[in-house]
Computed example of a mutant assay.
Amino acid sequence: MGMSVTISAAVAEDTEQILKLQYLAFQREAELYGNYRIQPLTQTLDSLKAELASDTVLVARLGEEVVGTVRGRIDEDGAGSIAKLCVHPRLQGHGLGARLLRAVEEALGGRESAPTRFRLHTGHKSESNLRLYRKAGYVQVGGRTASDGVRLVVLEKERAAGAADFAVSA
């Protein structure tokens, strides 16, 4: 490719690219479940702007193009909640999802109110996602059914003791 992929905090100007990438990347999930009402496909631009203002939103860039993204926040119970990890289909399978996952864990772990554990979920049929999360140390702790009817697997992992703080470049 000739360029490296960089990971940084998302900025307001990234919102439309993030939404388009999310729509593209989650098509395979929608097809897998026969359900095109999954939240990443129905999210509005205003809802994404609100997440950008309140959550940790990271993007992976190849030049000026946003080719990956992930969101994180600290939940009321103190867990680091990770959501909507996605990578452009043409770059999947090259470790970018794992890099984004580590980056959001490090960004959340570097906060003053750092979580002691991280939590995320994925559809029960999403084998490649489950493989990625298990390889990163996540274990299943439960399940639930999303409002769109998809059965989700809830996974968690403990934050490593003495984990290095990480600052994502702006």
Rank of each mutant, 00 (worst) to 15 (best):
K84H: 11
A161V: 12
S4V: 07
E31R: 15
I7M: 08
L52C: 06
G72S: 04
T56W: 00
S8F: 00
R151S: 12
L100M: 12
V150L: 09
R134P: 05
E105M: 14
S54L: 10
M1R: 14
V153T: 09
A136H: 02
L41Y: 08
H124V: 06
R134V: 04
N129S: 15
E76S: 06
R28G: 14
L91N: 03
L48W: 02
R28H: 11
V150R: 01
R159P: 05
M3C: 03
L19M: 12
T69L: 07
G93V: 01
G93I: 04
L41S: 13
L19R: 15
Q92A: 06
E127L: 13
R151L: 09
V154Y: 01
R134H: 09
I74G: 04
Y33V: 03
L32G: 11
E64H: 11
A83P: 02
N35F: 03
G109P: 09
E158S: 12
K20H: 11
E65I: 03
R102Q: 14
L96H: 04
A9Y: 03
Q22T: 06
F26K: 09
T69E: 08
A167M: 09
G142V: 03
K157L: 05
T116I: 02
L130C: 11
T116K: 14
M3W: 04
G123A: 09
A79F: 01
S8D: 10
A12H: 09
E158K: 13
T122D: 08
G149M: 11
L32N: 12
F166V: 10
G110H: 01
S128L: 05
D55G: 01
S8W: 00
G93D: 03
S169K: 13
R119Y: 08
V141P: 01
A163K: 12
T44E: 06
L152S: 05
R131W: 08
I38V: 14
V57R: 05
G143T: 09
T56D: 02
E29H: 15
R131H: 14
A164Y: 02
G34P: 00
L100Q: 06
A136L: 06
E76D: 14
P115F: 04
L152Y: 08
A12D: 12
Q17M: 09
A25H: 05
A103P: 11
E105C: 12
L120I: 07
D77C: 09
P40T: 08
P115R: 02
S126E: 14
A30G: 15
E13V: 10
T69Y: 00
G93P: 04
L48S: 05
